[in-house]
């Protein structure tokens, strides 16, 4: 018995609509371009802007933005632009890690729960419910306390809080798919359960997973900054947006707005742009609004 052809989810026709889609949807194009610009700037920026983010220069303390320091300097004379770029890298990499860990764990859990049902499903549902009743930030704070304040603890804490979201949305989809004719006929033809799961169910989950990743990414970047702000995330001298805002807070109200101002703008841009894109993508891929929950 030869295999039933795997469902083609990235059909060539879809790619064509994507480019024509971009041309029609100017807001989406703009937001995508801005976000791409931001990511490229934070990843490649340090190559161009070669001042070290933690180079202390007591001769140039608290300088206002100028050509030499486009975003000014902080209270130890560190260049704010260099720190914003370095901080962006910390945030974006951590956000991606959290989104990925959550996706992998959540997807495995959803496949197990959705295909095996019974007590496995009950167990996973109970577990995810129990985790989701804590606010993400509080859970990450507790994790930072139980381990050691720092990016690693926060990433673990936030991943722990992100996988249930994936699991919830994907589990429902897995169950829906198992009721569909094409899965039932594949099973009836004698396909191995594992083959059904990986060849026929899993590919359908990918678009949902990507959408969920966008939502998780934005929330994770924001939470990481929040933890950094409270002194539980990135530890000095690591540059991180939230921690920079804490640093600049005492100067913010006395006139040196640039130290806390620019990291805040970076954060605002990164998260708002992701939200906008995820939103727009959801309208296209999930018009009934069934799958993706952000938070």
């Amino acid at each position: 018995m030869t295999a039933v052809a795997a469902p083609q989810i990235v059909a060539p026709a879809k790619r064509k609509t994507f480019s024509s889609f971009l041309r029609r949807d100017r807001t989406l194009t703009l937001t995508l371009a801005l976000l791409a610009g931001l990511i490229v700037a934070t990843l490649l920026g340090p190559l161009v802007w070669q001042i070290q983010p933690d180079a202390i220069n007591l001769g140039a303390v608290l300088q206002a933005p100028s050509w030499g320091h486009p975003m000014g300097t902080d209270d130890t004379g560190r260049d704010v632009l260099a720190r914003v770029l370095a901080g962006g890298r910390t945030s974006i990499l951590a956000g991606l890690t959290i989104a990925l860990i959550g996706a992998v764990v959540g997807c495995v859990a959803a496949l197990l729960a959705g295909s095996m049902r019974g007590w496995v499903d009950t167990l996973f549902t109970w577990l995810t419910n129990s985790i989701l009743c804590f606010p993400a930030i509080l859970l990450a704070m507790a994790m930072a306390m139980a381990l050691q304040p720092g990016v690693t603890a926060v990433v673990i804490g936030l991943s722990l809080h992100s996988f249930p979201w994936y699991m919830r949305t994907l589990r429902g989809e897995v169950m829906r798919l198992y009721g569909q004719d094409f899965i039932r006929s594949t099973t009836a033809l004698g396909a191995h359960p594992a083959r059904v799961l990986f060849r026929h169910v899993f590919p359908h989950l990918i678009p949902i997973m990507i959408l969920q990743m966008a939502a998780v990414f934005g929330a994770a970047v924001l939470s990481l900054a929040a933890l950094g702000y409270l002194g539980l995330g990135a530890q000095p001298p690591t540059a991180e947006w939230g921690e920079m805002i804490t640093d600049g807070q005492q100067f913010f109200l006395t006139g040196q707005w640039w130290i806390a101002g620019f990291p805040g703008v970076g954060l605002l841009l990164a998260v708002s742009l992701t939200t906008l894109i995820a939103d727009r993508a959801r309208e296209v891929l999930d018009p009934r609004g069934e799958f993706i929950q952000a938070k």
Partner: peptide, 28 residues
């Protein structure tokens, strides 16, 4: 979209700076 993406602690600082320190509408 901006409000969803804004870090609350940063907005709080901004609000304090503008509304309380510069304009004096709200207390510090």
């Amino acid at each position: 979209s901006l409000a969803m993406g804004s870090p609350p602690f940063w907005i709080a600082l901004l609000a304090l700076l503008v509304l309380s320190i510069q304009l004096g509408i709200f207390p510090g």
